[in-house]
């Protein structure tokens, strides 16, 4: 079940990344060859980033893929590791719970303001509600890891960003 949800969300985010690439291509070709850029390419780009990142946050939390510094892992006693795990999961859950709440508040505010994107005039509040909902799921995902035994690499802990 969990794996299936993960597959679906990952797939959706992957499709968004591809769309993002072709959106840019379409915009550049339209501007240079057809004399007309893709309408709203900039704002669609911004919105797809919301999808790509927030769809992934729950599984990053659950699979413990966020960047951590594990310098002292070899010398940390098992009990301390459990405490560390508890602190990390609790802080993660807390942060995303607050985020879920505040993004929902911001969503309703943005709705009452009537904020829209500049070109396509798409309402912006759904993007905020989407972020709020996935933040709530992420908070739960962090909670689910709270009593996990650290170093249990079945969950596939990644240690570094791997982005450098």
């Amino acid at each position: 079940m969990l794996t299936r949800i993960e597959t679906i969300t990952t797939f959706a985010a992957s499709v968004l990344v591809l769309l993002l690439a072709f959106l840019t291509l379409g915009d550049v070709i339209g501007r240079n060859l057809l004399g007309s850029p893709l309408p709203g390419a900039t704002e669609l780009t911004e919105l797809s980033l919301v999808g790509i990142t927030f769809l992934l946050y729950p599984q990053l939390a659950y699979r413990q893929r966020h960047v951590v510094i594990d310098l002292f892992d070899n010398v940390t006693p098992p009990l301390m590791k459990r405490v560390q795990q508890f602190i990390a999961a609790a802080l993660g859950a807390g942060t995303f719970a607050v985020l879920a709440w505040r993004l929902a508040v911001q969503g309703s505010r943005v709705a009452s303001y009537g904020d829209v994107t500049p070109f396509l005039q798409l309402p912006l509040s759904p993007a905020y509600y989407f972020m709020a909902a996935l933040s709530a799921v992420t908070a739960i995902a962090f909670l689910l890891t709270i009593f996990r035994v650290p170093g249990d690499d079945n969950h596939g802990a990644a240690r570094h960003s791997g982005l450098e």
Binding site: T10, A13, Y57, L60, R65, H66, V67, S161, L163
Partner: peptide
């Protein structure tokens, strides 16, 4: 698919 999956995961880690 693995390439795309890796891309979105890395992206989300970085955005966080």
């Amino acid at each position: 698919y693995e390439i795309l999956k890796d891309t979105v995961q890395t992206t989300a880690i970085l955005f966080a």
